[in-house]
Design a protein around this nucleic acid. Structure first.
Length: 281
DNA sequence: TATGGCCTGTAC
DNA sequence: GTACAGGCCATA
């Protein structure tokens, strides 16, 4: 699933591919894809893509007078229309899984999204949008600022730490994979009430969240199911995962526990019952 | 703050 | 056949 490292990989590809180029037009193929927008698709016709950046798990296309935000959600990928990763028969049948296209003079990028949860949002004011979403600060802009924000919020939260790591208003970037991997790396049980973690424990945890995401970015992300970069290639971080999708396998750290799976807030959570002990309350 | 809904392919 | 995958939003 696209989490921060996967989105960052796509953004890096898009910078190489479309930054500085004039967008001819946007074609909406599935009307549901255009979501919460202040502007119409036509607003961006014949305008230059000044930059492509990332904020949280959003892709941000910058134009002279507006922004196009893309969210991949679970299964969204951006691919050239002639990519063999898009099932060929979908074009003839006008599949709603082909959701939108960005058309440049010699390039047509397709937003291919099997489960159709992904969105495009066209807005005028970036800060206003992300303020309204209550999105936490970026670990990648100013770590201390983002950590301070996290700490200020986490001390008031009695929910399990696993749920907190998925809450983009407290810390932005991790999803289910990197949350589980980070908690395992620092030997914290995912059910630990967030407010019971000490300041130093929290610093170690959030430092690890960023370290693992850095690592995953260097490996171009994790392809656990659908994720592909803009060239149609999978990320290779999957082979480095310690707990995610390793249910029943021996813990690679202690080599004693077998990875277990429990549900926390409706999400599967993987952990080693030997390394990650729930503190008594 | 916990839950269901959005979706559809895959695994059982 | 049914359960499940999970990022985010709406709802209670």
């Amino acid at each position: 699933m696209p989490e921060l490292p996967e989105v960052q990989t796509v953004v890096s590809d898009l910078v190489d591919l479309v930054k500085g180029r004039k967008l001819d037009f946007i074609e909406i193929l599935d009307t549901k894809v255009w979501f919460e927008s202040e502007l119409e698709p036509g607003h961006f016709a014949d305008k230059e893509v000044l930059d492509v950046t990332r904020r949280g798990k959003y892709i941000v296309y910058h134009f002279v007078d507006g922004y196009l935000l893309q969210h991949l959600r679970m299964t969204g990928v951006m691919l050239p229309a002639d990519s063999d990763k898009i099932p060929h028969n979908l074009f003839g049948e006008k599949s709603p899984q082909l959701r939108l296209s960005l058309n440049f003079d010699d390039l047509r990028l397709i937003f291919y999204d099997v489960r159709r949860f992904g969105t495009f949002t066209a807005i005028l004011d970036l800060d206003k949008f992300f303020d309204a979403k209550k999105l936490a600060p970026e670990l990648y802009d100013d770590f201390e600022h983002a950590f301070g924000w996290y700490l200020h919020k986490v001390v008031k939260v009695g929910r399990p730490i696993k749920s907190v790591l998925l809450d983009q208003s407290i810390i932005c970037g991790p999803g289910n994979i990197y949350a589980d991997e980070s908690l395992h790396a620092v030997k914290i049980h995912p059910l630990t009430p967030a407010s019971t973690l000490g300041g130093e424990q929290n610093r170690i945890l959030i430092t690890e969240v960023k370290r693992i995401m850095d690592d995953a970015i260097a490996k171009r992300g994790t392809s656990a199911s659908d994720y592909l970069d803009v060239n149609g290639n999978p990320g290779v971080f999957k082979q480095y995962l310690q707990v995610y999708k390793r249910k029943g396998e021996l813990c690679l750290s202690c080599k004693l526990g077998k990875i277990e799976v429990i549900k926390i807030g409706g999400r599967t959570s993987h952990f080693c019952p030997h390394c990650q002990i729930l503190p008594p309350n």
